[in-house]
Design a protein around this nucleic acid. Structure first.
Lengths: 229, 229
DNA sequence: TTCATAGTTCGACCCTAATCGAACCATCTG
DNA sequence: CAGATGGTTCGATTAGGGTCGAACTATGAA
């Protein structure tokens, strides 16, 4: 009774209705912001904040700060597995679902996100870079490989100018609509800027949408599909 | 926030330190009495009683009444699996172990339990009967099959006399030392009585021990090993 | 710069639920 | 039968923690 592996502490974390609702909402695998989770749990943002702090303290969550937002997702698959098991025990099902993302199709496709490219096009770019070994995840950080540097240089970007800045070159950014990663940082901003310069796309002045021209989208896709060798 | 599969309720059940200690103590697979679990949790018997009622109400436990005792075990393997998962999440291990059973070897081997045979010999008998299809579990009840009836009749037991009684013929009884099932009920009592009549064993007048003679143990083992066909 | 929004911290309130003492019931022992 | 033990129920106490209002910080937008 004195020591123990403290299964009680973890279970108690999950045992609060508000926190349980948050965790079940995160079972989709998507990341949600604090306010979204607050709504999901049916509590105010203050209480949600304390709850999320506790869940994070119990290593049940993974937290990523994103500007003035904070994105939460389940820490590991193990957490999801335990939640799944608990759902099984609580035989009576009846899931909650959570509304997500922008309803505007053009925003989903491509938009600016703090001056870099987000939406489906942003994700495609990130996936391509990652899959071709241009970007590697090192712990929490994102590093541009020499192959990657070569590619962006060939794309017309002056890396030296970027690395001279104080702000980080590469940052992983969580996509709003799809909730997957895309490229942020000064490089992300430079890439979007270059795309605009090339005339492949231009920003919609009334919204965050980024409108690709037909020719621009084709050229963009061609760049992403280029084999490394 | 209104409905939900109520993962919170189950988690909250496990989330109380006292209850968590009880559940971890039951992770061995053995059944424990209410007082043992109270000691394990470090609470009084009253509080333990309420805790156990709640755990039972949440379908986390299986309960078997045994005279003035109440034996608790985990309801299903699923429960154990979830607990295992929670332990994994609560990384820091350090298990509790619980003292068990009689220290006297002869008592472990064979003893009377409310006038029927318990201990290793009792378990061997139950396992043999069960494995040969003499006894079948039907829900919570235990039924003697026609093959079983034939066998015990051949062993010299008057079944008609037993079935005429009001008390149940077959009952599953949880073994004190090994915490596994053996045969109780009027049949269990009749079997022990018959064993004594045959001179295979006699009771120790100073304890609960049942002392088998060498010849008796051999004959007993032979009976249990007999193939049905 | 000023405004708006996301999130946090502090403080106070309140309510649930764990706990135990005491009395009670059920079952075994002698 | 009386005595002992295992377990439950009731009631009162208490502590822990969830909750929100209000004030505060940080980041982005205009």
């Amino acid at each position: 009774m004195k020591e123990g592996p403290d299964i009680a502490r973890v279970a108690a974390l999950i045992g609060d209705p508000a926190r349980a609702n948050m965790l079940t909402a995160l079972m989709t695998g998507k990341a949600l912001t604090a306010t979204e989770l607050a709504a999901e749990a049916g509590v105010t943002s203050q209480t949600a904040s304390t709850h999320l702090a506790k869940l994070d303290g119990g290593n049940l969550l993974r937290v990523r700060k994103q500007g003035r937002h904070k994105y939460f997702s389940l820490a590991t698959d193990d957490v999801a597995a335990v939640l799944e098991g608990l759902m099984g025990l609580a035989a009576k099902s009846g899931h909650l679902r959570t509304r997500t993302g922008p309803r505007d199709a053009s925003l989903r496709k491509a938009r600016v996100c703090y001056n870099h490219l987000a939406g489906d096009m942003g994700i495609r770019m990130f996936d391509s870079f990652h899959g071709r070994g241009f970007l590697v995840l090192e712990g929490e950080a994102l590093r541009l490989t020499s192959e990657g540097a070569e590619f962006v240089a060939g794309f017309g970007i002056d890396l030296d100018k970027l690395t001279a800045q104080k702000s980080p070159l590469c940052k992983e950014c969580l996509d709003w609509s799809a909730r997957r990663s895309h490229l942020a940082g000064s490089l992300g901003r430079a890439l979007l800027s270059r795309i605009e310069t090339l005339g492949w796309a231009k920003r919609d002045p009334d919204s965050r949408a980024v409108i690709f021209t037909q020719r621009g989208e084709a050229a963009f896709a061609r760049q992403l599909a280029v084999a490394t060798v």
